[in-house]
Each structure stands twice: as C-alpha cells, then as structure tokens.
Write a protein that binds this DNA or RNA. Sequence first.
DNA 1: TAGATTGTTAATCGATTAACAATC
DNA 2: TAGATTGTTAATCGATTAACAATC
Lengths: 209, 209
Amino acid sequence: MKKENISDAVIRRLPRYYRQLTDLCSRGVVRISSHSLGQEMNITASQIRQDFSCFGEFGQQGYGYNVEELRAEIGHILGVDNNHHLVMIGVGNLGHALLQNFPFSNTGFTVDAAFDVSPTVIGTSVNDVPIYSMNDLDSFIREHSVDVVVLTIPQSVAQDTANRLIDLGVRGFWNFTNVELSSPFPDVKFENIHFADSLLTLSYRIANR
Amino acid sequence: MKKENISDAVIRRLPRYYRQLTDLCSRGVVRISSHSLGQEMNITASQIRQDFSCFGEFGQQGYGYNVEELRAEIGHILGVDNNHHLVMIGVGNLGHALLQNFPFSNTGFTVDAAFDVSPTVIGTSVNDVPIYSMNDLDSFIREHSVDVVVLTIPQSVAQDTANRLIDLGVRGFWNFTNVELSSPFPDVKFENIHFADSLLTLSYRIANR
DNA sequence: TAGATTGTTAATCGATTAACAATC
DNA sequence: TAGATTGTTAATCGATTAACAATC
C-alpha cells in the first residue's frame, strides 16, 4: 500500500465499494470491469480505477477485477480484519437499538462492554454485551485495549466524557451526540452521525426541488 | 434567493452553520464576522462569505453579521419554517429511539404517524405519535400530505416499500436501511444514514493513523 | 474620517474525467 | 492473435482560497 495523501472523498467511497462488492458476491458474480461496476454505482469507470490505484493494483488487463478478491482487498484496506475493540457509552434508546441491531462484527468490531449511569440498566446485558456503571469506566479502559468508543449520551456531557476518554488513551470516537467534538491531538479521530444535519439537508432539497 | 447550481458541498455546510449560529445565539453573541465564525468552525472566512453569497447578502461591511438574523436566514433557506409533515415506517428499536429522542420540531418537522407490522406496537403510541398497521399506510398517505417518510425497516423490504410510497406521491425519504435506494423520478430525494459506512471510515482512519 | 469587514472577482488548488500505451 | 480492460498520465472541471474595491 502506498496510501499517502488519500483524500477524504476517496475514503468515503470505500465503504460503498465494499457494500456493492459484498452484494455482487452474494449474487454470485465472479468478475467485473470498472465500467460495469461504475454503471451499477453511478460512478465513472475512471474514478473507480483512480480510486483503487491509490492502494495497489487489484485488476488484470482485459479481464477486470475478481469480485471476491477485490472485496477482500477493500475490506483489508478498511480494516475489517483488524478485530477492533469497541465500548459503548450511554445505553438509552439509541444505544440499545445499536447494541441490538447493528452488525458490529461485519465491520470488524467486537463490542466488549457498555456503560451507563442508570441503575435500571447497570448489571443487565443487551445482546450479550454487559452494561456496567460509569464509575467502572476508567478502570475498564485502563485494563482493556479499546480502539473506539461509541458516544450515545446527552449533548451536555459529550465533550467532557470525550476528554476523559482521550486522557485514558482512547483515539477513536463514533459520535452520535450532535455536538462537534474536538481534540488537540491530531491522532484522535471523530466520526460523527449528525441526524439533525442529515434531516436538514433533506428539508432543503424538498423545499427547493 | 438566486440559488442556482448550489453545490452539494455548500448544502451540507448549511446545517453546520445553523448549528453554530444557534449555539452563538444561546451564548448571547450578537454579532460575528466571517473571520471569527471561521475560527470557531475551522473554515476560512472566504469560504463562509462565498457560501452565504449563494443565497443573498446577509452582512454589513465593517460590522459583520447579526447572529440572530443570520441564523433565521439560514433556517429559512433550510426550510425549518416550512412545517414539513413526516411519517415513520418501522418502529423497532431504532424507530422507537428516534420517536422518543429526536427533536423533529427543531428541524421544522411534525411527525403525524408511525407504521409497523407488529401487533404488539400497533395501536400504541410513542411520544404522542400513534402507531398504525402497515395495512392502513396507503390510505393514510392518500389522505394526508406527507413530505418525508423515515425508513427504519429491514433491508429486505426497503426498496419495495420505497417504491410503494413513491407511487403514492411521497418525494422525500430519510433512509436508515443501509441500502442504496433509487428512483427513476429525479424529484424524489433520498437522504441516507449509513451507519456501517460511517463506522468503516472510522475503522480506516484508526487503522491508518 | 479611519478601520473593519463585506460581497465578488481572480488565482489556486484539488478532484474528476478523458485518453492511451501496456498487457492479459 | 484480436479484443478487452487495466493502471497511469494529461486535460478538464469545480471548489476553495486570496485579493480588493466598495462601503458601513
């Protein structure tokens, strides 16, 4: 892998490629050209080849790409075979929904634990994930290697909680709090799911059709 | 408003501006320059002025922008004062979490109803939103003016359900199904929340730090 | 009036698309 | 071998940034 200066736009397309290739696999498609992949995804063949070439040479002239092989390569680039470890903070409705339904293992994540302040959920478990008290958070993080923390907590405590975790060494945050989080450390990564931003762009587009 | 050829990148920044300005309002800030707004948001002043100029002239030379006024303008552009009507399809964990916690009214939406197939939820209500049977969906849509449908249903029925709704005249979809939906009609708008894509980009970034 | 800051035009930068030699 | 399709270099397009006259 060369992977220097990979633009954000390229990185954001990788999961889509991965998803499309997974689908092609399940449909039993063995090989595909950049041209036909592009048709299915509404992307130019040029862009596809350009994107892939950031990471290596996965195709073969005159043939195209082996679907299964390419899927594995992109999965590898995305880190799905890294077995990252993840912890969830905040098991309200949303946290509960994610624990119950989101296929963490498909994306290479193992959910080790969840934490909450509410006595009614502490001590229970959802989908085999044990829910502990927030009081036990610091020691848990210190004793385990946690790659990503899911923040499904109220806005008001979002940045403070993030800071506390950053101090403990956490470097990846999947942020559902609708607050823009930040850190002075450049190696701390935030990935935001801003529900409101998303719905507002839809609002704009239906209002200005 | 001129708003011709507004790029997607600009549109996606509007909710962030709106969020920041709401915050500034609540902090009692009365005026702000593009320069200081840019500092707070990690955006160049040029880009901010360029973005705003797509929609009109909201500032004053030598002064900057009135925070409250600018917030109202951007809210108006986004359509938060349009009182859009919305219906949710699928009240599982995620749908339930959204009904319970998401501040639809802040983004200018009224949730009129939710629909599900499960007899255990049909007839109940969440946060004053009544949950009806999927059998009653078609007639409901015909009798009400529904601007946006939230899809919190299984992948397997996503495209079929969308097609059914498009036939009934629905033109806006907030799609949580992790499936790429499409329609032959260009005025049908899909806004996707792809949880898996989001987590995979985070996976990439922590793997390639 | 002098200083600050806008809206806009021009310059730069980066991302997408087109073209094509290499080669399976 | 001939046809197809890659990986890559060059051309184009669009988005971001810089500069500056207008003006509050």
